[in-house]
Design a binder for these strands. Structure first.
Lengths: 188, 188, 188, 188
DNA sequence: CATGAATGAGGGTTCATTCAT
DNA sequence: GATGAATGAACCCTCATTCAT
C-alpha cells in the first residue's frame, strides 16, 4: 500500500521538478527523471507516453495547484481591497514556497514542448481572478483597463519580484511591498 | 574592410537571433546558425570557441544595446517624471521593436548556457537606471524602496506587458498605459 | 476442456496471425499479441517460454495445416495427372484462403527467429508430395529431375502466383492457369 | 582521390548488404552498418537522412543493377528462344552471383521500410522484359497469358530455384534445368 | 582564414522478459 | 495459473566539436 500522494505519476512529477530546479528544463532527460525517481527508464513510459506528454501534464497539474491557491476565497463576501491583498499574497507565497514549480512554469512556457491544447486547458483557470478584477472595476476601485492586461501585469510583476525576494537573506522586508506596489499600480 | 555592421561576428549574431525567433533557443544548433549565416560550420568556431561562448557574447551584446537604449538621456537636466516616462517608453519600445532580441534575452537567461561571468558583466549596465531611481527617491517622488527591487519590478512588468501588447491587433491602446502603471506603482 | 479451437495456445496463435496480417511480422510485439488475445503479457510466457518459441511453434502448426491440406488424397488410386492437378489447386487455394497464415509463412522464413530444429521439423511433411512426384517420374510423365528441385519449383511458383492473383479484381481468370503452367513445366 | 566505385554511399551500401547476409534485414542497425563500414554512426546520416531512406535507396540501386543485368541485349535481333534462354540464365546468374543483394531484395520487400514511391520507382524497370514476352506471344511461341502473370512466374520460380541451387554442392547439374523449366511452362 | 565531412556521446523511445501479487 | 507493472538493453537519430584539405 502506498502512502497518500505517492502514486507513480506524482513520483515522476516530483523527480522532474527537482531536476528542473537543479539543471533547468533543458537538462531534463527521461533517463535523468527515471534515475531521480529511482525507477527504470522504461517505467516512465508506462505512465506518460512521451516526454512531451509528461511535461504538458505536469504543467497542467502545477497550473491547477497554482490557480487553486490564488483563487481560494476570492469570491467571499469581503471588501474588495481585502481580497485583492489576499490574492497578491497568495500569489507571492506560492512562488516562494514552490520554487521548483515556479521555475518549471516559467521555463516550460517558452519551450518547444508546449502544445496548443495545454495552453487552452489552462486558460479557463483564470476565471476567478478575472472576476475579482472585474468587481474592482465595477466598484470604481481599479482603473478602467483590459482585464487580461491587468492579469498579465500581476503575473509578470509578482513572478519577477518573487525571484528577487527569494535571493534575499531577509525576505520579510519585501513581502508586504509586493501587494502594495500592485495595488498602487492598478487602483484608480 | 566590410561595410558597417557586417563583420563575421555580427553576421553570426544575426543568424542566431533570426533562428531563435523562428525555432526558439533550443532549436538553435551550430550547423543551423552556420547555414543561416551562409558560412561553413567550422567557420563559426573560428570566431567563437564554443556554442556557450557564442550565446554568452551575444547576450552581453544584446544587453548592451538594450541598456544603451533605455539609458540614453537619463541624466539630462529634465524633471524626474519626464525622464521616468521616457525610460519606460524606451524600455517598452525596445521590447516591441527588437522581437528576436527579446525572445533571446528571455530564453537565454533560463538556459544552461549562462555563465556566472556573463551575469556579472551585465550587472554594471544598470547604473544609469539605478541612478535615476535614486534621484526619484531623493526628490521624494518615489517610494523608499530597495533600488534593485524597483528595477526588478520595472523589468518584469514591462517585459511581460510587452509580450502581451505584441499579441494585440491594436497596440496603441496599451502603450501609454505601461508607463502610467509603472509610475503609479512606484510613486510616493 | 475448452471448446474446439479455443485453447489458450490457439488464442495466442490467432492473435499473432491477425497481427502479422495487420502490421507485419516486425510489428508483432509480445505485448501486442497479449492485447490482441485479450490476456496479460505475462500469460503468453506461461504457454511459450519466449517470442522465438511462440513463432516457431506457430510456424510448425501452420505448416502442418498447410501440408495437411495439400497432402490430402494424394495417395488415392487415381490417374497421376488428376492428383497433380488437385495438389496444385489445393496449394493455391490454401494461399488464397488463409491470407494471414501465408503472410506469416513467408515473413517468418526470412526472419531471425527461425531455428534449425524448426526447419528440420517441417521437412518430413513433404513426404506425400515427394512420393507423388516420384510416382510421376516412375510413370514417365514427369521429367527426370531432383524431386527437391521440383518441390522448390512448385512452392516458389505457386506461392508467388498466389500473391499476384490475390491482388487481381477477378481471380477466376488465373486460377486455372496455375496448375497448367506447373504441369507444362514439369511434364516430360 | 577515391578509387572508382568507392564513394561513401557505396561503402555504406556494401556494409548494409554484408550485414543483411550475415544477420538478416532485421539485424541491421544503423550502428552495425556504421561499424561494418568502419565509419561513425553519425556519418551514415550525412549520406542518408534516415534508415528508411538508406534502405529504400539501396533497394532501388540493387533493382537497377538487377534489371540492368537481365535486360541487357534483350532487344537484339536474335531468335526469340535464344533471348529467352539468355534472359533466364542472366536472371539466375544474378541471383547466384549477388547473394547478399538477393537476400536483401527479398527481405526488404516484405519489410515495414518499403515506401510507395520506391515501389513506383522500380516498376518501369520491367519494360524490356515485358516487351520480350510480348514478342514471344506475337510470334506464337508463348501462351496467351497476362504478361505481368508471366513475369511474376519467372521471378518467383527463378528466385526460389536460385536459393535451392545455391545450397547444392554441385550447381552445374541444375543451372540448365532452370531455363528449360521456364520455357516449357510458358511456351505454347 | 574557410570549409564541411566526420566523429561519437547522449537523448527519446520500444520491447522481450521477469516477478511480486 | 494469471496479471501487468517494472526492467534495462538496444535502437534511431541529433548535434557540438574537430580536423584534414
Amino acid at each position: 500500500m502506498k502512502g497518500k500522494g505517492s502514486t507513480k505519476e506524482e513520483l515522476i512529477f516530483d523527480a522532474t521538478l527537482r531536476l528542473v530546479e537543479q539543471v533547468g528544463l533543458s537538462g531534463v532527460s527521461m533517463e535523468a527523471v527515471a534515475k531521480q525517481a529511482k525507477i527504470a527508464t522504461g517505467t516512465v513510459y508506462i505512465y506518460f507516453k512521451s516526454k512531451e506528454e509528461l511535461l504538458n501534464k505536469l504543467y497542467v497539474t502545477v497550473k491547477l495547484k497554482f490557480y487553486g491557491t490564488i483563487s481560494d476565497g476570492l469570491n467571499e463576501d469581503k471588501p474588495f481591497k481585502v481580497l485583492f491583498k489576499k490574492m497578491c499574497n497568495d500569489y507571492l507565497r506560492f512562488f516562494l514556497e514552490y520554487y521548483p514549480e515556479t521555475i518549471f512554469l516559467q521555463q516550460f512556457y517558452n519551450s518547444p514542448y508546449v502544445t496548443a491544447s495545454t495552453v487552452d486547458a489552462t486558460k479557463g483557470l483564470l476565471q476567478p481572478l478575472s472576476e475579482l478584477l472585474q468587481r474592482g472595476k465595477t466598484e470604481m476601485l481599479l482603473k478602467e483597463m483590459d482585464t487580461r492586461f491587468m492579469i498579465t501585469f500581476l503575473h509578470g510583476t509578482i513572478g519577477q519580484l518573487a525571484g528577487f525576494i527569494r535571493d534575499q537573506p531577509v525576505q520579510k522586508t519585501y513581502t508586504d511591498q509586493v501587494w502594495t506596489i500592485c495595488w498602487d499600480a492598478l487602483k484608480l
